[in-house]
Computed example of a mutant assay.
Amino acid sequence: MDNSIKGKTVVITGAGGVLCSEFARHIASLGGKVALLNRTFSKVEKIAEELTLAGYIAKPYQVDVLDKATLKSVHEQVKKDLGPCDILINGAGGNQSEAITAVEYHELDIDEEIRSFFNLTQDAVQGVFNLNFIGTFLPTQEFVSDMVGRDGCCVLNVSSMSSYHPLTKVLGYSAAKAAVNNLTEWLAVHFSHVGIRVNALAPGFFATEQNKALLFDDEGNYTPRSKKIIGSTPMGRFGVPKDLLGTVEYLIDSEASGFVTGVVIPVDGGFNAYSGV
């Protein structure tokens, strides 16, 4: 089956990350012209070199998704290099330990020295919220202007399993990703009359180099929190990046999903469907 991605300009924020770099490789292999946006330039520079050597079209750009002026400048450069944006993937995001409580439950005898709900700082929680929510809003505001009134254009946001059911400890990130889901639905309705689809992907729990230390101990065994995750995942394993590629391709291919907008699709091994009993 032919895809509608070939020849399209696909802008990916957070393209230096584990998941989004795999998105970029897959989309490039489908014939998309990939603009790799990332705060750390060396990461996307390396990926662009790899894709170019393989015969694909890819360009790296350094940008902080919270810097509106730089986003505007990069947008103009992308248009010069690759043409107007047809597809935007908002993959930039992340968490920080200061926005996470040290314990799952607040108890009467809790140690006052640990990071509890009451001593999470505004800066930490706001920083995580801004990165994930405002870091989705601003690139959308910048690049979607290219799409208005053009056929086959869409936005794909990257949400999280914590957007459905907030994870214990993970306050700031869970709230931000829930807001991304809401934004996805709002944007889908708002742009429905000008031909722009907006959807989101909600990955479950993925084992990558970035979170390896959190999921496995020094002997390679599951940590206690990992055991809880696997116990709540009917398919009984962590995801790997390639598990996401089919859903990404489907949602950005207007030939395959041209009547799909305003949805958030979980790719989670059944985690979201499982009640625990």
Rank of each mutant, 00 (worst) to 15 (best):
V194R: 07
G32A: 14
K68E: 15
G94Y: 01
F191K: 07
D64H: 06
L82W: 06
K227Y: 03
N119G: 03
P241H: 09
G55R: 09
L51M: 15
G135Q: 13
F118C: 06
Y164P: 00
A92N: 04
V103Y: 05
S232P: 00
D217R: 12
N38P: 05
D81P: 02
E209Q: 11
V44E: 08
A207M: 14
T247N: 04
G31F: 13
L131V: 13
R225C: 00
S159M: 05
S275D: 08
L36Y: 14
N272S: 15
E112P: 00
K177L: 15
F118H: 14
R197Y: 07
L36Q: 13
I252W: 09
C85N: 01
Y173F: 14
G195R: 08
I100A: 00
K169A: 03
D268T: 02
L108S: 10
V128Q: 09
P139K: 07
E49M: 14
F238M: 10
M235V: 13
E249N: 03
V240Y: 12
H190Y: 13
Y164Q: 11
F41A: 14
I12Q: 09
F259S: 00
L171S: 04
N119C: 03
E185C: 09
S226L: 05
S159L: 06
R150N: 15
N132L: 09
S257R: 04
G204H: 06
V78S: 02
R115G: 02
A188W: 03
A178V: 10
F118Q: 11
L201T: 13
R25P: 07
R237Y: 10
L131S: 11
V189Q: 02
V180R: 03
V264Y: 00
L156I: 09
I5T: 14
V277P: 10
S257Q: 06
L108T: 03
A213C: 02
E107Q: 12
M1L: 14
R25T: 15
F271L: 06
E185P: 00
G17H: 11
V34A: 03
K80C: 02
P241W: 12
I27K: 01
A92L: 05
D268K: 01
R225K: 12
G55M: 08
Q126R: 10
A213I: 04
S4Q: 15
A179T: 06
I134T: 09
T70Q: 12
Y274Q: 00
I252E: 03
K212Y: 15
L88P: 03
G231F: 11
A273F: 04
I47F: 06
F117R: 00
D2C: 00
A24T: 12
D243H: 12
K72E: 13
G276D: 02
K242R: 11
N211K: 09
V189W: 12
G93H: 01
H190C: 01
D268F: 02
F216I: 02
S232I: 00
G55E: 05
I230R: 07
S160C: 12
G246T: 13
